[in-house]
Design a protein around this nucleic acid. Structure first.
Length: 270
DNA sequence: ACTGGCACCTGGGCGC
DNA sequence: TGCGCCCAGGTGCCAG
């Protein structure tokens, strides 16, 4: 589920419910995530007040008074607030019980996500080498151009590389390349600066729009008010292999790049 | 230093 | 209905 817009939507949804709340208890029903959930998580976090909830790339940072809970949702994870005593589902692995009586519940069928504890989260091995945030000024077409010189990798996996820019997952990489008119198979090093300027603008525009719309697929992460999300109808190419291009009417094609499905229009993208 | 490939894990959808 | 196969929004790690 989660690409950057979904993670940011989650952050915005849970933050008001967590800020200034004290953690009463942490219940780990299944700690077998990508990395084992720390055994002492309950001891570390209980009694502490959550100061803020930030995001770095696709990590959520739940900042407590002393230390930070790092949460990654992987491919299938979600965080939502439920009432204390809510029925526990098969994949509801972790509960963070709050003084408000609400529970922040972590659900993750595939268990590709992670939950880690750090005193210095931005220095953590997993976060330290990350590239700039896509919506910040530190990311632009000049950076894409500079980093891509002499690179033979296809442009699509290049822009999905977290060292280049974070938060560009398969859906938005696919859509941004379509919007910029660039064939995803092109060698990163063979693309002009002008086209990278356009591509960076499209990445920013599409991510911002998706965040504005509440992500592509997330719904009712807080309470029961189902959010429509970034409607599937807004997608031009992702998931539309064999269908017709919305711009030119030609049939969309799919190739594998970096083991990921990559749909593109052979007529609009070069 | 790069690149491509594999791995982690469960569930849903498809064809037979 | 059931079974086997393929696919899935992420990303760290490995060998070449």
């Amino acid at each position: 589920m989660p690409e950057l817009p979904e993670v940011e939507t989650t952050r915005r949804g849970i933050e008001p419910h967590l800020r200034k709340q004290q953690v009463v208890r942490v219940v780990v029903r299944d700690g077998r995530l990508r990395w084992p959930v720390p055994e002492d998580l309950d001891i570390r976090l209980s009694g502490q007040t959550i100061v803020s909830v930030e995001r770095r790339a696709k990590y959520l940072l739940l900042n407590a008074e002393v230390g930070t809970l790092l949460v990654h949702l992987g491919m299938s994870g979600s965080l939502r607030l439920v009432e204390a005593g809510s029925a526990v589902g098969k994949h509801d692995h972790i509960d963070i019980e709050l003084s408000s009586g609400h529970v922040l519940r972590y659900t993750d069928p595939r268990r590709f996500g992670s939950m880690l504890w750090s005193q210095t989260p931005l220095e953590h091995t997993l976060l330290k080498k990350l590239g700039p945030e896509p919506l910040s000024d530190a990311f632009d077409g000049q950076r894409l151009f500079d980093l891509s010189r002499k690179r033979s990798i296809a442009v699509k996996p290049f822009i999905m590389d977290n060292a280049v820019v974070v938060g560009v997952g398969n859906i938005y990489a696919t859509e941004a390349l379509f919007a910029a008119g660039i064939d995803p198979r092109r060698e990163a090093g063979s693309i002009s600066k002008a086209r990278y300027l356009k591509l960076a603008d499209e990445i920013k525009r599409i991510l911002a729009k998706a965040i504005e719309s509440g992500g592509t697929t997330l719904r009712d992460f807080v309470g029961g008010d189902g959010k429509p999300g970034y409607f599937k109808q807004e997608l031009f190419v992702y998931g539309r292999e064999g269908e017709l291009c919305k711009l030119c009417g030609k049939t969309l094609r799919e190739v594998k790049l970096g083991q990921r499905a990559s749909v593109f229009c052979p007529n609009c993208q070069h």
